[in-house]
Structures are given as C-alpha cells and as structure tokens.
Design a protein around this nucleic acid. Structure first.
Lengths: 121, 121
DNA sequence: CTGAATCCTTAATGATACTG
DNA sequence: CAGTATCATTAAGGATTCAG
C-alpha cells in the first residue's frame, strides 16, 4: 500500500500506514528541523554555517536537533581532527529524498494560503 | 517558486518558502491531526465516529484539534438542530488536497523505514 | 451526543554561561 | 569552533468531571 486511496475506510488504516506517516512527522516535528534539512539540501555544512543560515536558533537547540536527525538517519556527522576541530553535517540518502516531501508541503501550503486568503479577506 | 530546487542556496529561502512550509507543518503538528484528517478522507463523520476511529484520543484533545483544524480551514463543522444535537465534520477543499501531502509522507516513511532497517539490523 | 472546564504532568523551547 | 550544562519558561497532552 503506497496511497491512502488504496484503503476503503479508516478502519483499514493499518499499523504500517500509521507507523510510516508518523515516521515522517517525527522527522520534521519541532520548530527547526525543516529549516535545518533545507539548509543541508545545498551541500554539506559546518555547524557554524547552519547556525548562520538559521539566525534565531540557539546552540542548544541546534545541537539537539542535529543529534535527533543523526539518530533518525537523516544526517551524518563527520569530524575532522584538525585544530580547532571541524565538523561537517551532510544529508543521507533518506535526507535527500526528503526533498520531495518538502516540495509537496510547499506546494500545498501555497495553494492553501491562496484558498484561505480568498475566503477570509 | 514551487520547488526547492529552484533556489540556488538557503539564503534564498524566501519568506514565502518558510511561511508555506510552516503552514503545512502547522496543519499536522501535534499527535492527532494526521489521524483525524485521514479519518475524514472517507467522508463526513460525526464527533463520536471520529472518536471511535481513534480509540486513544480523549474528548478534550479531539475537540481542541477539531477547533484548530476548523480555524485553519481544513474542516468544516455542521450543526443539525436535532435532539440530541448532531454535528458533522467534513474536509474542505484544502483538506481533501492534503491527501497528496500524506501520500508523499507515507511513501517517504516506508522507504526510510526500509533504509534504516537495512543499515541497523 | 457533543463537547467545555478544570487541574495536573510532561515535553519542548529559550537564555545564559561555560569548556576542550 | 562546536558544542555542553544549568535553569527558567511555555506549550502540549492527559485525566476527570460535568452540562446543554
């Protein structure tokens, strides 16, 4: 099953469906993950570069979110034994594939924004 | 702009991009909204029917989430002046269009699950 | 049947200071 | 440079009770 339309009713929403959708939701939950992933679409980056991309994030949140994303197999962390130490973050294959999710979210968000503004103003 | 690949780097992530993606994230944030929307894909339902579809939700959360979804233009609430009062919830056009977001989330989630299991077991 | 009201617990985020 | 530690604040969620 790869589409909701393949189900007859909600009672058929199998564990698989719920688990897979929740996996995806958990990847982006929180205030910053979508921004961090988006930042890394444009190539591997160092901690400080991501921090500059997302000005209002603080270091505690950035390192926590990066750890989450690493644990979830979305980014990989590479440490270079230089002085001072250099660290680079890069998307995994799954991380890059997440682009299609964000693309659809963007498309739906734009359309929805148009609908709502059309109906409330 | 309707795709991330139309940007050269993250600094071009315009307000439009951020706002639209956040609109979408906010629609499903929280523990229950994806399930509620999915339940309504299969037609308009009454409060109690949704409650039965999602066994572990409690009434405070269900009515709160439904109010959120209504305020965001995802569902409409229709009251029938019967005794006892009947209420039906139904997806708006935007709500139905959200199917494509969930479809991509499902597809990515399944693929990701395969990747991660393949690499950790 | 469809919720609203209240209280409580836990999770998420923020601010600030500090370190190898 | 790339974080960690600590404390404070806010948001999310759960349990229970009650009402039109």
């Amino acid at each position: 099953m790869t589409k909701i339309s393949e189900l007859k009713d909600f009672s058929e929403c199998s564990t698989t469906y719920i688990l897979a959708v929740n996996d995806t939701i958990n990847v982006i939950n929180g205030k910053w993950k979508a921004a961090i992933i988006s930042s890394l679409f444009f190539g591997k980056k160092r901690y400080g570069e991501i921090e500059k991309d997302i000005p209002k994030i603080n270091s505690r949140m950035l390192s926590k979110e990066l750890r989450d994303l690493e644990a979830n197999g979305i980014v990989v962390r590479k440490v270079y034994d230089t002085i001072p130490v250099g660290v680079e973050y890069e998307l995994t294959e799954s991380g890059h594939a997440f682009r299609k999710v964000l693309d659809v979210m963007l498309e739906w968000g734009l359309e929805h924004r148009k609908n709502v503004i059309g109906k409330t103003i």
